[in-house]
Design a protein around this nucleic acid. Structure first.
Length: 777
DNA sequence: CAGTGAGCGAGCTTCCGCTTGACTT
């Protein structure tokens, strides 16, 4: 028998708190939400004022039983879920599910897990805030309505199993629109001019000074004309300006910024960052990793101050309080920081160590002094031209927080971290020019999103929560709306004009541009779904939709609006659109007509088919006996929006029949794994040097024979009893093949010694391979 | 894994936000 039961959301938190509260308190956790809307039959009674039908989630049954038992034994149940909308709802659901009377419960909240904060919370209990609970119910019901009414429209009008939602559909929209911006981007070109000058010092030594011309030339001719002028020009320093500057450290980490920095500095994916952070949290090394608050506890500030003083001295300390400014932040936790600032490193896997170190540095830096800089601007006049050269230098006078941490940016072209020194020059100094170089440059197209930069954008729009950023990114990829890919760049020529020793030299140089790594691209299906949703459900696709409904949720939380009235105001027009789309919208296949095949005069088009994007030659006709169109899947790397007529026509050149071998047809085609030769129902991959469009029969036979030879060598054992049964040598060692299925041989048995009976036994006892989508009922 | 794209239709798919393991390869 215990007097007090405290329920928090996470078990790691429960463990810590139990230590603070003493033996009269049992602390346990609910593991987040314990109930959710029923999945079948919509889970909402639309007719009856949007009454939600809640059900204990299947994975929470055990926890609920356990909590019921503990609650029965306790005198008082302290509901200590987070102080935000979701946390308040968790407390309310617990009260409902555990059937707790009002006088038995106390609702408490705390923002820091320190003994002080907890004891203060216990002294100040309150009631469950029903307005806040209703705001959460409105949020939940709205998301269910959007997701479960729009998705079925997609099943009917686009393809089965697709999904739409308030968050995911907007995430896909961002990716699709960025891709179109890139596609439509017009590259501009200009000529940048750099001058190199010699600056003498008192000892007669010289240092090179690099400066850039304030004017960019639009054509090669203009640039050349300027270089011509420079041949006879004199160069003189006309201005030297020194300005003090400073840089301030970044805010402590929250979920989104941690994901961004771990991506930029450590190359982690968003979900990888969360998994590693989870392990650090569970082992007590960092505070909670799903947070939108930049606040640090007093304890963290004190220990940071101590550590900074110890490492770098007191003049490096500057205690700062940060305020969250992102939209919709709910601030139930602290910022992400080391639990013990005195630990600069921790034991663990290399990933854990590196992420911890990043968090430690960021936290420490946030409490350190500004860096003091001195910026120098030098202007150099050209005697026979109006254009001027400018040189900018930056010197760090006091490094401050830069000693430990510099935040990265997504911009690939900045290298803001180095110092640029300017040699000492004075006004009216005459400078000797060594060379003037004009380089052709190009405007940059907008960058594609990375997982982390997409999270950043979503957060700016107030869409999604710290706990859902990683799952959302995974969902849009699982649905195949978006793919994370590497793509090679293309070569681009540019011109460089160099004036040196009184002569102008012109060179053509080549660079690689547009190469991408781990960037998000929309798929054809993602584009089609996006366009369909934009046409039919513009309201939920609006970037401000979430922000707008959040305002109403806030009004509900403040008691200024009734939650089911708010839902009704949304539902009536929305449901009308759903009905309208079901009745009137065309089946959307993203069809694009590319043109006419000059050979046959038939129309060539591309669209989404049952099995993905395809090209079609000819049209479906109602006439009896009319010729059926030809179909061909698009290859990887080909897309409905960008494929050309020529590329599409190439698709119909395969499969090619090369002739016969041993009385059976030999054909060549391109499959999922590249070009192949097919003969007698067997497949042989073409070599790298073979071109499927031109390869000849004799070469194909050569490949078929080579494959046969290899297969013969692969056979370890065959059996008289059953011709379908073989022991083969594969890529990962010997295995059993029976019919079309493969089986693993236990490590303890030798493949050569297997008998027929042994093999059959292995086949019978081997488990059914799990279906790829998992979760079978 | 090597293709498919006629039509019918049973039964299924789907949301967002809180949490943590239990699973193979």
């Amino acid at each position: 028998m215990h007097k007090n039961l405290v329920i928090v959301e996470s078990p790691a938190k429960a463990k810590t708190i139990e230590g603070f509260l003493g033996k009269d308190y049992v602390v346990t956790s609910s593991m987040g939400h314990v109930r959710d809307l029923e999945k079948k039959d919509f889970g909402i009674d639309i007719e009856n004022n949007y009454q939600p039908r809640y059900k204990v989630s299947s994975d929470k049954k055990k926890i609920v039983t356990e909590l019921k038992k503990l609650a029965k034994e306790a005198e008082t149940v302290w509901l200590a879920s987070d102080e935000d909308r979701e946390g308040e709802a968790i407390a309310w659901h617990l009260k409902e599910v555990l059937k707790l009377k009002d006088d038995k419960i106390k609702r408490i909240v705390f923002h820091e897990i320190t003994k002080d904060a907890i004891t203060r919370a216990v002294k100040n209990p309150r009631d469950i805030d029903e307005h806040l609970v209703n705001a959460q119910q409105a949020r939940r019901v709205l998301d269910r309505i959007v997701g479960f009414e729009v998705s079925p429209v997609l099943w009917k009008k686009v393809k089965p199993s697709l999904s739409a939602g308030r968050v995911q559909s907007v995430a896909v929209r961002l990716i699709v629109e960025r891709e179109r911006e890139i596609r439509d981007f017009n590259t501009e070109t200009w000529f940048r001019v750099n001058g190199y000058f010699l600056v003498p010092d008192e000892d007669g030594n010289t240092t090179e000074l690099k400066a850039e011309l304030s004017k960019r030339f639009t054509t090669r001719e203009e640039a050349n004309a300027f270089l011509e002028k420079c041949k006879s020009a004199e160069f003189k320093v006309s201005d030297v300006v020194k300005k003090p500057g400073k840089r301030t450290p970044a805010q402590p980490f929250i979920t989104s910024t941690l994901q961004q920095e771990a991506s930029r500095k450590l190359g982690f994916s968003v979900s990888q960052t969360m998994a590693v952070a989870q392990r650090l949290y569970e082992s007590g090394k960092i505070t909670y990793m799903r947070t939108d608050s930049v606040n640090l506890s007093g304890l963290a500030l004190n220990t940071s101050k101590q550590k900074i003083t110890e490492l770098h001295g007191e003049n490096y300390v500057k205690i700062r309080k940060f305020k969250t400014k992102s939209k919709g932040a709910q601030e139930a936790h602290e910022a992400i920081r080391p639990t013990y600032m005195e630990n600069q490193t921790v034991p663990g896997s290399s990933q854990e160590q590196r992420l911890y170190e990043l968090i430690w540095k960021r936290t420490i830096a946030s409490q350190m002094a500004d860096a003091i800089l001195e910026r120098t601007n030098v202007t150099i006049d050209v005697s026979n031209a109006t254009e001027k050269f400018q040189a900018t230098g930056e010197v760090i006078v006091f490094d401050g927080f830069l000693k430990v941490y510099i935040e990265s940016t997504d911009d690939e072209n900045t290298n803001a971290n180095g110092q640029t020194l300017i040699p000492p020059v004075h006004v009216n100094d005459a400078l000797e020019m060594t060379s003037v170089v004009s380089t052709q440059r190009f405007s940059q197209r907008p960058p594609r999103y990375t997982e982390a930069s997409l999270v950043k954008r979503l957060e700016e729009l107030g869409i999604g929560r710290p706990s859902t950023y990683a799952p959302t990114i995974t969902t849009v990829q699982n649905r195949n709306y978006v793919v994370k890919e590497e793509r090679p760049g293309v070569e681009r020529n540019f011109t460089v004009l160099t004036l040196k020793d009184g002569k102008i030299k012109e060179e053509e140089k080549t660079e690689i541009t547009g190469a991408e790594k781990n960037k998000l691209f929309p798929t054809d299906i993602g584009i089609v779904v996006n366009d369909f949703l934009m046409d039919n459900f513009d309201e939920i696709m609006d970037y401000n939709f979430t922000a707008n409904v959040e305002k109403e949720f806030d009004d509900i939380a403040d008691g200024k609006m009734v939650w089911n009235e708010m839902i009704d105001k949304f539902y009536q027009p929305f449901h009308g659109k759903v009905e309208h789309a079901l009745e009137n919208a065309e089946r959307s296949k993203g069809e694009r007509i590319l043109g006419i095949d000059p050979k046959t005069g038939k129309e060539v088009s591309v669209k989404i088919g049952r099995f993905g994007p395809l090209a079609q030659l000819g049209e479906v006709s109602q006439d009896e006996g009319a010729e059926k169109p030809q179909f061909s899947s698009l290859r990887t790397g080909q897309h409905i929006e960008t494929i050309t007529l020529e590329e599409a026509l190439d698709l119909f050149k395969l499969p090619r029949e090369l002739g016969e071998y041993e009385g059976k047809k030999v054909t060549v085609a391109i499959g999922r794994f590249g070009p192949y030769v097919r003969h007698d129902n067997k497949f042989v991959s073409l070599g790298k040097e073979d071109d499927p469009y031109s390869v000849q029969l004799d070469r194909a036979i050569e490949l078929i024979e080579a494959k046969r030879e290899k297969d013969r060598n692969a056979v370890v054992k065959i059996f008289e009893e059953d011709a379908d049964l073989q022991v083969l040598n594969g890529r990962w060692g010997p295995y059993i093949k029976h019919g079309k299925k493969n089986y693993k041989i236990p490590k303890t048995t030798k493949a050569e010694e297997l008998t027929f009976e042994d093999c059959m036994k292995i086949i019978e006892t081997s488990p059914e391979p799990k279906s790829r989508r998992g979760r079978k009922k």
